[in-house]
Amino acid sequence: MPDRVERLFRRCHERNRAAFIPYICAGDPTLERTVEIALALERAGADLIELGVPFSDPLADGIVNQLAAQRALESGTTPRGVLQCVAAIRQKSEVPIVLYTYLNPLLQFGFERFHHDAAAAGVDGLLILDLPPDEPIDAPAAPLHIRLVAPTTPADRLRKICDAAAGFIYYVSREGVTGVRTSVASSLRERVLELREYTALPIAVGFGISTPEQARQVAEAADGVVVGSAIVDRIARFGRNADLPDKVGEFVRPIAAAIHDREERLC
C-alpha cells in the first residue's frame, strides 16, 4: 500500500490540519517495546511514524538520538529486526511508517534487497540521511525516497531535490544536528513558501521542535510537524517503566493536539 502517505496528507488537507510525525529509534529500549510505543503514539494522535534504524556513527544526530541508537544497538537491534518490528506494527495498524536511516546498513544488507524487504514489511518511505539525490544509485520505486531540504540548500538545488522527491519533502528547520531547541527559526515561514514554488508535495518540518507551542507555530506553515528528540528523551527517562508506552502517549497528546488544532494556515 504505497499510497498510505499520499492518503494521509490528502486527509489532513481536507480537514485543514497538519500531520503529527513523531520520531523514535527502533529498538530503544527493545524492538518489542518499539511496537507498543508506535501503537501508543498512533492512539495519541500520530499521523505518520518516523522510525530510526540505529547506526553506530549517526553524524547528523545530536546527543539524545546518539544515545538512543547506542541503547538500541546494545539491545541487539539489526536492520532485519527493524523490518520485523514494522511488520508487527502493520498487523495492528495502517499508520504510515518512514524509516530514518544512514546508508551503510542498507548497503551491507543489499540496497535493493532492503527496499524489497522493507516494502514487504509495510514500510512506506525511506529517509536516508547521507544519500543526497546527486548520487546516481538505482533504487526501486518502493518504498518512497523522502528527500531533505536544508536552510543552506541553494535555490538551484531545490529543483533537483524536488524532482527526485516522493511522498513529502522533509524541511530541516535549522542548521545543525537533531535535538531540542528553545525557539522556532524565524525564517521558517518564508522558506516553506519558497519551497512551495518548487513542489506540490506536502512539506514536513523537523529538527528541534519539542513543545506544543513550537509545534503549533510550525503547523501554521507546514503540512507536517516532526517531533523527535523530546520524545526520545522521554523514552530514555522512562525506559524501564512497565507503563512506558502510556507515558510516551501522555507526553505527545498535547503536542498532537497543538498540531491538529491549528487556528490558521498562513502558507
Binding site: P132, E135, T152, T153, P154, I161, V172
Partner: peptide, 13 residues
Amino acid sequence: MFVPETLIAALEE
C-alpha cells in the same frame, strides 16, 4: 557526497 543535505552547499562552495 554521502553527507547530510545541510553540508552540500558548503562542499560545493
